[in-house]
């Protein structure tokens, strides 16, 4: 069985918003990473991941998200998340991701705070 992740990007002048739909596992995490690294190579330093349509994550997928955060921090940028389900938010906190990326309740608040 497959649970493919779909990723779409809204590129903006001051950054980008990435939308995910589906399961963030190892394959989904790599897909997010590839798109994020393309954006970083293109100069994006503020990236918001909107997980509104992702209901399931696993620890391997989150470990890849942590790697993306590390690379963005190395480049002097920042990554934030919004629209997490309660269980995904809790899982992010367990793995420490919440200590290194801001988590917003909704996209409007994130866009305003990040100025993208």
């Amino acid at each position: 069985m497959t649970e493919e992740l779909r990723v779409s990007v809204d590129r903006r002048d001051a950054g980008a918003i990435m939308y995910t739909k589906g399961y963030i596992n190892n394959v989904g995490g790599e897909e997010i990473a590839n798109r994020a690294y393309e954006l970083m190579d293109g100069g994006v330093r503020t990236l918001l991941l909107n997980l509104r349509e992702t209901k399931i994550v696993n620890s391997i997928g989150i470990s890849i998200l942590i790697e993306i955060i590390e690379k963005m921090i190395e480049k002097g940028g920042r990554i934030a998340f919004c629209c997490l389900t309660p269980v995904i938010h809790k899982t992010f906190q367990i793995m420490g991701l919440a200590n290194y990326a801001t988590i917003f309740t909704d996209e409007d608040a994130a866009v305003k705070e990040l100025a993208i």
Partner: peptide, 14 residues
């Protein structure tokens, strides 16, 4: 932690 060599192995904690 962030920056650690091994980021995996969180299953049991979760």
């Amino acid at each position: 932690q962030l920056g650690a060599v091994h980021k995996r192995g969180w299953g049991l904690q979760i």
